[in-house]
């Protein structure tokens, strides 16, 4: 692959937290590059720094030292509002705990990113409905999260992640709260999205989940331990 296809490029990424008198080194210099249309799994044991890496890639957090280029734009060092804009336009999040607004309908939950993008109500509604159709929830639009199963909630979350047509879909243990059948279903959704050309970055500690990705990056103690690309079948 060429450098032009590079979507994410991080170098020397370091993140330290102060916890009282102690300094926790979550990341100790991570270098990696993720290209357009890749399906990458980030693995590693607890405390390896994968969540921190994920937060920095997702622009929820900033690195202490290092560089982060997203879509050819240097992200490290931009302000709060600009980070919010990047999250809104470039990133789609899918969380382990779904993180849906409990009182809002599926449709409204999916509309949420579009509200902050300043999209008019009419277009918002149409885009949100289309996103829900893409994840197979066309008939559950007016349901609230507590009226949906775990798998359906995660589909709503995926639809919300997709609705702004982001550069990357970032998933943090998306099947962690689901049973194995539903997990397989949700992984099927991700596979389908990847086939449609969506770049997917997924944090997981489950080997069989990671096995669905073409590329697996393993972190250990805040550093890249291995980076393997599975040959296309």
């Amino acid at each position: 692959m060429t450098r032009d296809g590079s979507l994410i490029r991080v170098s020397g990424l370091t993140r330290e937290y102060r916890m009282g008198a102690e300094t926790v080194h979550a990341l100790r210099g991570v270098d990696m590059e993720i290209y357009r249309n890749e399906y990458v799994a980030i693995m590693g044991p607890s405390g390896s720094g994968k969540s921190t890496l994920m937060n920095i890639i997702g622009c929820l957090d900033t690195c202490t030292v290092g560089e982060y280029w997203l879509n050819g734009v240097e992200v490290s060092g931009v302000g709060d509002d600009e980070l919010a804009r990047i999250r809104n336009q470039e990133i789609g999040f899918v969380f382990q705990t779904f993180n849906l607004l409990p009182r809002a309908t599926a449709l409204h939950n999916v509309e949420l990113p579009l509200i902050y993008a300043g999209v008019s109500a009419k277009i918002r509604r149409r885009c949100a409905a289309q996103a829900l159709e893409r994840v197979g929830l066309a008939d559950r639009m007016q349901h609230r999260p507590n009226e949906l199963s775990g798998g359906q909630r995660q589909r709503v979350a995926i639809a919300r992640g997709l609705v702004n047509e982001p550069s990357i879909l970032l998933a943090d243990e998306p099947t962690g709260n689901l049973d194995s059948t539903t997990s397989a279903e949700i992984m099927g959704v991700f596979d389908g999205l990847h086939q449609q050309g969506q770049t997917v970055v997924m944090v997981t500690h489950e080997r069989d989940i990671a096995a669905r990705a073409r590329r697996v990056i393993t972190l250990l103690d805040g550093r890249v331990h291995s980076d393997t690309v599975r040959e296309a079948a």
Partner: peptide, 16 residues
Amino acid sequence: TREIGIRKSVGARRTD
């Protein structure tokens, strides 16, 4: 708090 986190994660700015 969680709702605020969700809103921020999908792109709400401080002013929003």
